[in-house]
């Protein structure tokens, strides 16, 4: 690692103030610290959100859940409130990384990082979540902007993510056999406003909505409804683990399985 300064923020306001210039916020650090170890980033300072108690916790609200940004994946996976309101979200959290990673990694960190193969962005987009920051509330559709890019501005700190409860939802992940990130992950949510389908791991630009699936499933929420829908490999990743064609195929298989398993 390159050398840097370290500051443990006492409050969100503190953190927002400190996170300027070349300083970087660190939440669970599950992506940032490995990145620093490989000297792929050189922040002047790390501003640690780990001491801000207000950012930890899960609240059941209006049928949905609001999850504090510093809530760990392990806590989300275990939460009775999450299991009740959005069981698919608890299962998704249980499938992120490994147990030690889930004990440190946080929803805020994952969402802010927007790794193109991460799980949470798919959940946020499919469930129509709202990203709550120190400055504003941002709809998930407007938040994820491409590879590792988000709508966050300098000095803006995610404080929570609010998920409305769907009627039914499910997440199916086909794992990269090596990294165990999503090679293709598909989150399907049947909500009052229609069906939303988000795909992670596959797209060149990160998480995206699969509108053709949404249209077919809004007509009939049945796996068979996707049979006739073609998935174009254009814009999908191709690498040593999977070609774009294969990813396109998996998107449909995973989506169908998610529809079948949705509850």
């Amino acid at each position: 690692m390159y050398s840097f300064d370290y500051q443990k923020a006492g409050s969100v306001a503190d953190a927002a103030k400190a996170a300027t210039g070349e300083a970087k916020l660190v939440a669970g650090g599950m992506t940032l610290i490995p990145t620093l170890k490989l000297r792929l980033a050189q922040p002047s300072k790390l501003v640690d959100l780990g001491g801000i108690r207000d950012l930890v916790g899960i609240k059941a609200e209006g049928g949905g859940v609001t999850i504090g940004a510093m809530t760990t994946h392990a806590a989300v996976a275990k939460s009775a409130d999450v299991k009740k309101a959005i069981p698919a979200l608890a299962v998704l959290a249980e499938g992120i990384g490994d147990p030690a990673v889930r004990n440190r990694g946080t929803i805020g960190g994952s969402v802010a990082n927007n790794d193109p193969a991460a799980d949470y962005p798919a959940a946020c987009v499919a469930l129509g979540a709202t990203i709550v920051t120190s400055k504003r509330k941002i709809a998930a559709d407007d938040f994820f902007k491409g590879l590792f890019e988000t709508a966050l501005e300098a000095g803006e700190v995610i404080t929570a993510v609010s998920f409305p409860a769907p009627e039914k939802a499910n997440y199916q992940k086909f794992r990269n056999p090596a990294s165990r990130y999503a090679l293709v992950g598909v989150f399907v949510a049947k909500t009052k406003g229609g069906v939303r389908v988000a795909v992670t791991g596959a797209g060149e630009g990160g998480v995206f909505r699969k509108k053709s699936f949404e249209a077919a499933l809004s007509k009939s929420f049945d796996a068979g409804a996707l049979d006739a829908v073609k998935v174009d490999a254009k814009g999908l990743n191709s690498d040593i683990h999977a070609s774009a064609d294969y990813r396109a195929h998996l998107i449909k298989v995973m989506a169908k399985r998610a529809v079948q398993a949705a509850r």
Binding site: Y6, G29, P34, D48, A74, P99, A100
Partner: peptide, 26 residues
């Protein structure tokens, strides 16, 4: 050096963590 092998797992405040992916100051 990519936080995957788990040979560094210790418990911090009762939970397993990868001690190679946490700063001492944390």
């Amino acid at each position: 050096d990519t936080s995957q092998c788990g040979t560094c797992v210790v418990h911090v405040d009762g939970k397993s963590v990868k001690s190679c992916t946490m700063l001492a100051v944390q």
